[in-house]
């Protein structure tokens, strides 16, 4: 009797949840479908499906609107920053976590403070700092800034991982005459590899999306990253909707691919570190 009374409620719950799944996904599906239709078709039938799907818009966006350049720039800046930020943090976190030297705690706290400070607060000084170093409109400048912004988080996570490794590991190596660099490179680094993979991914996503810094620091079209290029492109191609949708798909696709490929690895990496 209870189940009979609850049946309408059950159906309402199903409808609500599956209905919202449509609301969550449909805009992204429309984005993909419209990128495969010519603009004239989008304008005459806003709700239509692609009758003869073409990749023409992608070709136009990739070459004419220089998305290939934006893509490459984003890859250089984000990839370079993630590698640099992780490398310097992996180096710094090792002595901070495993050696007790004069000032080690103060230095640890100094790095941690960065987790709580909004780096946007420093936008204006960063602009003039970059200007004085000749790094305005430079991919190098953006890479250094992005790399620095990842340091607090990386040092925080990697220190925790180094600390979880048993002390006998480096003691034994030290007795055998290994130097600090050898211990770091051949014992410590391989053991924190799962953590390295996840901190790299966690840095990658917000940096790939960063818009305010490129908006302020980049000037010329051939230096733009994807978000900066996208804002330019939306000003120039206002009436070419097919191209606009294709541009949005191209800006979104890399992260979807990355997540589909990496989700399992991230979860494995995180849990491997936690259980030790």
């Amino acid at each position: 009797m209870t189940s009979a009374r609850r049946a309408p409620g059950r159906i309402a719950v199903h409808l609500l949840l599956w209905g919202y799944a449509v609301v969550a996904l449909l805009p992204l599906v429309v984005m993909l479908l419209n990128s495969l239709r010519p603009t004239s078709e989008i304008f005459t039938a806003p709700l239509g499906l692609p009758t003869s799907p073409t990749l023409h818009s992608y070709l136009r966006v990739w070459t004419d609107a220089s998305f290939s350049t934006y893509f490459l720039n984003s890859l250089i800046v984000t990839g370079g920053a993630v590698l640099l930020g992780t490398a310097v943090s992996a180096l710094a976190a090792y002595p901070l976590a495993r050696h007790d030297f004069f000032g080690s705690r103060v230095l640890g706290a100094y790095f941690l403070a960065g987790l709580m400070l909004p780096i946007r607060l420093g936008l204006v000084p960063i602009f003039y700092l970059m200007d004085s170093m000749g790094l305005i409109d430079s991919l190098l400048g953006l890479t250094l800034l992005y790399a620095a912004s990842g340091v607090p988080f990386c040092v925080f996570v990697l220190s925790a991982f180094y600390r979880s490794l048993p002390g006998e590991l480096d003691e034994a190596a030290r007795l055998d005459g290994a130097g600090e660099f050898r211990i770091f490179g051949q014992i410590m680094l391989p053991l924190v590899r799962p953590a390295l993979a996840s901190v790299m991914l966690f840095q990658f996503v917000p940096l790939w999306h960063e818009f305010l810094y490129p908006l302020v620091l980049l000037r010329s079209d051939e230096k733009f990253t994807i978000p900066r290029g996208l804002s330019q492109f939306f000003g120039e191609y206002t009436t070419d909707w097919s191209a606009l949708f294709a541009g949005l798909v191209l800006a979104t696709a890399p992260l979807f691919v990355l997540f589909v490929l990496a989700t399992k690895q991230i979860i494995a990496g995180l849990t491997a570190g936690m259980s030790k």
Binding site: G122, P125, L129, L144, A148, V151
Partner: peptide, 17 residues
């Protein structure tokens, strides 16, 4: 071990803030 991260972080994050 420490200087690269220290310099990068100090120059581009702490100093501007």
């Amino acid at each position: 071990f420490l200087l690269p991260a220290f310099l990068l972080y100090s120059a581009f994050i702490v100093y501007p803030l």
